[in-house]
Structures are given as C-alpha cells and as structure tokens.
C-alpha cells in the first residue's frame, strides 16, 4: 500500500512532509507500548500509536519503522517533532481511533505483523 493510499484511507493529516507519497508500506503495527513495537521488528512498517512522546520516535528509529501515524487526533509534542524531522521520518495524524484505523487499513489490504 502506498503512503498516498494510507493518508487517504485514514483521512490523515501529514504532520511531517518529508516523504514521497509513492513510497510503499507493507505492514502495520498498532501499539501504545513501545517495548511491544521493539519485540516484533518490521522494517519499513507503519506504526499506529497514541503515544506522542519522544519515545515514539526513538522506538521507530530502533525498530526501523519509517512511518508513524498518531491516532485519535493526537499531535506530537514539539520535541517529538524535532526528533522525527532529524531522522527523516514520515509523521501522520488521524482523527480515527486505533480500532477504526486498523479496520480501514485492513479492508484496503494492508497486512499486520503477527507472523514475523
């Protein structure tokens, strides 16, 4: 699924603009617990989270996640934004809750990460 499709599916705002919308995302993870994200590594995956602290960015960095989408209308803290910008991450924000976000992406064919 392309970044463009993800943005459309989630009606997401692009918080950090340094991206190519043709970029392909193959998997999604949904979690507010950073250790969980770290246990199942999906390089290049999309992370759906409600956690907007700097740790969301550090976690994405360590797990090689390239797109982070904050759910339920959350906006990243200023420090979070700065860290993401430095690392060239793509940051999105959707008003949808995590449950609905997962459901919509799934219907569009985006896979999860359980089997890895």
């Amino acid at each position: 699924m392309t970044l463009r499709e993800i943005i459309e599916t989630l009606q997401a705002k692009v918080v950090l603009d340094n991206h190519d919308e043709r970029m392909v995302v193959e998997r999604a993870r949904a979690s507010d617990l950073m250790s969980d994200v770290l246990t199942r590594v999906n390089p290049g995956a999309l992370l759906l989270t409600g956690l907007t602290t700097p740790q969301s960015i550090y976690t994405a960095e360590m797990a090689d996640v390239t797109v982070v989408c904050y759910v339920r209308g959350k906006r990243p803290q200023e420090e979070t934004l700065r860290l993401a910008e430095e690392r060239g991450l793509v940051l999105l924000s959707t008003d949808l809750p995590m449950y609905e976000s997962c459901g919509r992406l799934y219907k569009k064919g985006l896979k999860g990460g359980t089997e890895t």
């Binding site: 979690s31 995590m98 799934y106």
Partner: peptide
C-alpha cells in the same frame, strides 16, 4: 490471542464488530 493488536482488530472488523469509541 496470539495475534497482534492490528491483526485481532482486522478479524473483528471482518466479523462486523464496529468501532467502539
């Protein structure tokens, strides 16, 4: 469930369980 949050939600959606917000 042994599945991840994403995959559990996907299956629930498949069954017709709607957003509970």
């Amino acid at each position: 469930s042994t599945l991840s949050t994403y995959d559990v939600v996907c299956q629930l959606c498949e069954m017709g369980v709607k957003n509970g917000e």
